[in-house]
Structure formats: structure tokens, C-alpha cells
């Protein structure tokens, strides 16, 4: 087999492994299903009444944003899984095998895409129940939105792969994810229009890629003016992958167990 065919074969073996272990980790399954549902319900019914989103019901404004946040964090399972593999010595085993050097990471990021599809279906389902509707959206725009979301999730999987490889334990990965990256999603248009934010924060939120992608999703699914958001979102995803995928692979080559 050629080296590309071997990489693909190794990737699929490891992606299958990542999915096969999920039934034995009920906490992960909850993270993928119950947690996003809780977030949607809390924001729609607790904050929804108090947040003004001119021209839209809050649930319509919220859903594209909260899906962006959830999908971006879908890759977090990669950070947890890789740091666990490092801690438990599995990375040593993989690195001593005649397998592709990238496959541990491509296998992770690929299984994340499949998990994100599940997460997306759950989120859209609960969104429709809570009253969300596509507005002025063609089938093509809806599909393009889904493609953008999955690509964003894929880009963040690489970021989280790097986080996982630098973490000595899943707890450390958790701390990095939720103290450094999670707040970024709030300083954006994910949950509220940025216009209500104070100076400084507002300017930050306007250039935050989470704002770009959330606004792109709203233009695709709610018919808001797109400006440059949609193509800029794809550019952002490409930049994140181009930067973080090589960094993560380089780190994988040298990472040591424990």
C-alpha cells in the first residue's frame, strides 16, 4: 500500500476506536447531547426574555450562535482523549508501531466530525422544539451553513489536539479549554449582539472569529446582511487548520508519556 493509503487506513482504525470507546464513557455522551440541550434551554428561557435582538425572536438569534459554540467545543473530546492517551502511555505504544505518524491525530479529528454531526442534529432538534426557524434561507444556504459548522469544528479539533498533547492530564486540558478558550466565545456575537458591549470589549468582539462565524451563520440561516462574514469564516477555518495541524503533528512526534 502507498503511504497515503496506509495513513487513511490507520486514520479509520483509530477513528473507529474513538467511537467504539464512547459507550463506555457515559459522561462523554452526556457532553454531546444533554449539555447543549441544557444550554439552549437556559439561554432561551432564562436570558431570552431580557436580551433584545431587534428584528428577531431571541431563539432565532441564539441558535446559530450557540451551535457555533457547541461545534467549536465538540473537538474538546480530542483534547481529553489525547491527554489521556499521553498519561496512560498509549501514545508510546502508537509511536512504537509501524503506523502513520499523523494518524493518531487525523483519526481523532475525523471521529470528531462524526460526533459533531450528532451534536448538530441534537441542537437543531431542540432548537426547532424551542421555536427556531430558518428565515429566508435556501436549501443551498442551509447546507453551506452546515458545511461551515463542520469545518469550524474540524479546525478547533486541531487546536484541541495541541492542547491535549501539551496537557499532562485530562484535568489540565479541561482547565486550559475552559479558562482560555471558553470565555472567547462569550466576548463575541454568539449569545448577544455586540452593539450592547462597552468600548474595548466591543471592538474585541467585532474582530473575534467567533463573531465572524456566528454572523456568517445568521446571514446563511436568517437572511441578515452577509458583508464579508461568510467567506471570511472559511478563511478563518483554513488559517486555523494550516497553523494548528502542523503544530499538533510536530508536538505528537516528540511528546513523551507521563
Amino acid at each position: 500500500m502507498s503511504s497515503l493509503a496506509l495513513t487513511i487506513s490507520d486514520t479509520l482504525v483509530l477513528a473507529r476506536r474513538n467511537l467504539a470507546r464512547i459507550p463506555n464513557q457515559p459522561d462523554l455522551l452526556i457532553a454531546y447531547t444533554v449539555q447543549p440541550v441544557m444550554f439552549v434551554l437556559l439561554f432561551v428561557y432564562v436570558f431570552g426574555g431580557a436580551i433584545r435582538t431587534p428584528g428577531f425572536d431571541y431563539v432565532d438569534f441564539l441558535m446559530p450562535g450557540i451551535i457555533v459554540q457547541s461545534i467549536a467545543f465538540g473537538g474538546f473530546v480530542t483534547a481529553l482523549g489525547l491527554s489521556e492517551d499521553v498519561q496512560k502511555g498509549l501514545i508510546d505504544r502508537f509511536r512504537s508501531l509501524p503506523m502513520s505518524r499523523a494518524a493518531v491525530l487525523t483519526g481523532r479529528t475525523f471521529s470528531d466530525v462524526l460526533l459533531n454531526c450528532l451534536s448538530l442534529a441534537v441542537l437543531l432538534g431542540v432548537g426547532f422544539i424551542a421555536g427556531f426557524n430558518f428565515i429566508d434561507a435556501s436549501a443551498g444556504e442551509i447546507v453551506l451553513g452546515i458545511v461551515l459548522l463542520l469545518l469550524l469544528g474540524y479546525a478547533f479539533s486541531w487546536i484541541f489536539a495541541l492542547v491535549g498533547l501539551f496537557s499532562s492530564s485530562p484535568e489540565t486540558a479541561n482547565a486550559i479549554g475552559f479558562t482560555l478558550i471558553f470565555p472567547l466565545t462569550f466576548a463575541s456575537s454568539v449569545f448577544v449582539p455586540v452593539g450592547s458591549m462597552p468600548d474595548g470589549l466591543r471592538q474585541f468582539a467585532q474582530v473575534n472569529p467567533f463573531t465572524t462565524v456566528s454572523d456568517a451563520m445568521r446571514s446563511l440561516w436568517l437572511g441578515t446582511p452577509a458583508h464579508t462574514d461568510v467567506w471570511m469564516s472559511f478563511v478563518w477555518c483554513a488559517i486555523l487548520i494550516a497553523v494548528f495541524a502542523p503544530l499538533a503533528v510536530a508536538r505528537y512526534r516528540t511528546v513523551a508519556a507521563r
Binding site: 487506513s9 482504525v13 467504539a20 470507546r21 496512560k88 502511555g89 502508537f94 508501531l97 509501524p98 503506523m99
Partner: peptide
């Protein structure tokens, strides 16, 4: 270095497949 969340059989099959 075994995957605790995989069965014993799945662990061995995975390693065998990674030896191609």
C-alpha cells in the same frame, strides 16, 4: 498501555490493524 474503554478483543484488533 491498553485502552481502558475498549474491550480486550478490540484492543488487540486495533494494534494488529496498526501493524497493518
Amino acid at each position: 498501555a491498553v485502552d481502558e474503554n475498549l474491550t480486550g478483543f478490540a484492543n488487540l484488533e486495533m494494534v494488529g490493524r496498526l501493524y497493518h
